[in-house]
Design a protein around this nucleic acid. Structure first.
Lengths: 212, 212
DNA sequence: ATGAATTTCGAACGCTCGTTCGAAATCGAC
DNA sequence: GTCGATTTCGAACGAGCGTTCGAAATTCAT
């Protein structure tokens, strides 16, 4: 009501239009990742793909909507990929290793979008914030379950639940901090980094006698 | 030159003035931590302590200067405290444990300022950015040395240097991610969290047989 | 080719922001 | 109490922002 026949052209509309919206979303992610959400002007996003300021409002309902689309789609895609990972056959160690690799690989493939998910979560307005948080919580549980299987604290009661929670948050810390330093040239493939992380979780950080 | 007799009243000036500047810095940190640097208006910072907008510019040269002061002083204080920690007698394990506790304790004591150091580092202009980065690098080395002593890779050459670097970055990830979840009521004292972190670094995350 | 739906544009509005500046008020030493 | 230095204020400026809107241009099925 009030907005007339305004529709969200992201879901319906011509294929070419949806494609252009995707391009705009990608360009926006690059600029927001570099300068921050508040410091980013919709004008500048449009300019990068030669879309006028007014034209931007055909693709996005508002600046907040733009930020929401980036975070919702990005985290949704990450969750979907990782849900496939945990369904693969293997033991607890294999599952967790797969999640670590999957997270870092997604990170390396979409650095701008993931940086935004980390930095600009709290820039989302109430409604948008809640919808993104729902996905994030699902993803958290995915990781926590895999870690609980590894540590042997699968039952969610008693003291072990707090321990598992903290270990999970430690793991997320390691993973999400990667955007501060990870460069594929300098640090090798994500599989190698994930292996080091897994090694830490299995045996600690001290140098061990056995070479395997 | 050009600004006449304008001086930075933070270093010199009356004691009461320095105190007020400190209060303003603290109030600014609270607002910036909540809404982000770009979204924070100098007007609002002044309003919280009943200082007019024009008055704010007696205490700070610019909005960028305000952000710099917060980060420079905060990280400088953290570095100073931690340098005292590593000078205490004890073995490698004791030193690293002390650093973990020290970092988390400082974090718990100055959550707003530390959140800003994490989120708004890249909001600093070139000159300010470099000065803050210098401190951060010193602090990084402090942590890396302690970790290298623990893992036994003290020599800075060969393959082990990369491994130590990654472990150090993992530790910083765990530590700096804490602002996303740590609540002293829910998660216990920082010493307990640091102990769990230390346990992970020493033995990994799997449940062990020996209870100590 | 025609007409309806989709897409694009450009100008304008209202608002908020950082910064400047000169005068007024306050303070501290003598 | 006087005087100079320090501190505070209020108004104003100019720039940039998100958003709106109606008209023009384009596209596509028929």
């Amino acid at each position: 009501m009030g907005a007339g026949t305004l529709i969200r052209p992201r879901q319906q509309g011509r294929v070419a239009t949806r494609r252009k919206a995707d391009q705009l979303l990608e360009a926006a992610a690059a600029i927001i990742a570099e300068k921050g959400f508040e410091a980013t002007a919709i004008r500048d996003v449009g300019r990068r793909l030669e879309v006028s300021l007014g034209g931007m409002y055909y693709y996005f309902a508002s600046k907040d909507d733009l930020l929401f689309q980036i975070q919702f789609r990005t985290f949704g895609a990450l969750l979907a990929e990782q849900e496939k990972v945990v369904e693969r056959p293997g033991n607890a160690e294999d599952r967790l290793r797969g999640l670590l690799i999957g997270h870092l690989a997604f990170f390396a493939a979409h650095p701008n979008e993931m940086k935004i998910c980390t930095f600009e979560l709290e820039s989302l307005k109430e409604d948008f914030y809640d919808r993104v948080l729902t996905i994030r919580r699902k993803y958290y549980r995915l990781m926590e379950d895999a870690i609980a299987d590894l540590t042997g604290d699968r039952d969610r009661r008693a003291k072990s639940a707090d321990r598992t929670r903290h270990v999970t948050l430690f793991v997320f810390g390691m993973l999400n901090w990667a955007f501060m330093w990870y460069k594929s040239g300098k640090d090798g493939p994500v599989e190698a980094v994930a292996a080091e992380m897994m090694d830490l979780l299995l045996h600690g950080a001290r140098k061990r006698r056995d070479a395997r």
